[in-house]
């Protein structure tokens, strides 16, 4: 856990929060802190307690125990002064019935006292200017998500919560949304995102909390999490570049396999191995694969990651 810089107030501070539904412990003693400008991810499979954690941080639910603050202010009970400083995109897009995209965002803008022109500009930013007069019921999945994001950001919040923003999007729409999310963060806003996509957390987040069964297992930068695994790095070259026997005798090679397309050498000393391969000029179609967050999850929970 990070220590607040110069003792300043953290943007988010949660201390041992817990919430049960009946006998199910949705959140079971979560503590975390997020500092200003950070892109923070909560990663875990469905039912890990990500959404409930987020809902407690947003002040939508009262935790059974523990306490959460945003900008040093308690989130519960509902605090009308705090709300304009945060933007929340809910898992299901919440729109008024029978309104067009433009009417939706203007409505949300007006609820926060933001000018109409700003709302129209935000629609432009998320690339929905052409769909402005379309009723939200008729927008595609990707367009709906972008409109939802635009409605979340229209009042310029300092802190943005996104609950699985790319769920149910096609790969192209996902990448477009990632670009938008990076843009939000680089403009200085703090972003908290839940996802069950490993690649999403890896690409976007400064720090990731790995969550399972209502508990946070570890929090760190994705690269640190993976480095600390001491897992083998997989180096592969085109089939025929080097023989299986020769590869097995290379310094640092732990395990060798050849599937007829490429030859893969597992190693815990990638630097030594790669130097050797360079000297032999056996680098055709070289690929190096480090461990992924999937591996981290496996290591932490002892079971395969299931999204």
């Amino acid at each position: 856990m990070r220590v607040p810089v110069n003792g300043s107030t953290q943007t988010i501070e949660a201390n041992d929060i817990a919430k049960s539904y009946g006998s199910v412990k949705a959140v079971d003693g979560v503590s975390l802190s997020v500092s200003e400008g950070e892109f923070f991810g909560i990663l875990g499979p469905n039912g890990a307690g990500k959404t409930t954690t987020l809902e407690i941080l947003e002040g939508l639910r009262q935790p059974d125990r523990g306490r959460a603050t945003l900008f040093g202010l308690p989130v519960w009970p509902r605090n009308l002064k705090l709300l304009p400083r945060i933007g929340v995109q809910l898992q299901a897009s919440a729109f008024f019935e029978r309104l067009t995209a433009r009417e939706q965002i203007r409505t949300f803008a007006s609820l926060y006292g933001v000018k109409t022109a700003k709302a129209d500009a935000m629609l432009e930013t998320v690339g929905l200017a052409d769909q402005a007069d379309t009723r939200t019921e008729r927008l595609s999945g990707g367009q709906t998500q972008r409109l939802s994001l635009a409605c979340t950001l229209v009042h310029d919040p300092e802190l943005v919560f996104l609950d699985e923003p790319t769920a149910a999007l096609d790969p192209q729409a996902r990448r477009n949304l990632w670009d938008l999310l990076r843009g939000i963060n680089s403009s200085g806003r703090t972003v908290v995102l839940t996802t069950h996509y490993m690649d999403e957390a890896e690409t976007l987040c400064d720090r990731v909390a790995i969550m399972d069964a209502g508990k946070i297992l570890r929090v760190d930068a994705p690269a640190v999490l993976m480095r600390d695994l001491h897992r083998a790095v997989h180096v592969s070259v085109a089939h025929g570049t080097i023989s299986l026997e020769a590869a097995a005798e290379l310094p640092g090679a732990a395990q060798v396999s050849d599937d007829g397309v490429s030859l893969t050498i597992s190693t815990t000393q990638p630097a030594v191995l790669l130097t050797e391969l360079v000297q032999r000029q056996s680098l055709t179609d070289l690929q190096v694969k480090g461990p992924t967050l999937e591996d981290v999850f496996l290591e932490l929970t002892g079971r395969e990651y299931r999204a």
Partner: peptide
């Protein structure tokens, strides 16, 4: 439709 929830988050 979660509109109330969304309004709960607005001032």
């Amino acid at each position: 439709r979660k509109v109330l929830r969304r309004l709960q988050l607005a001032p």
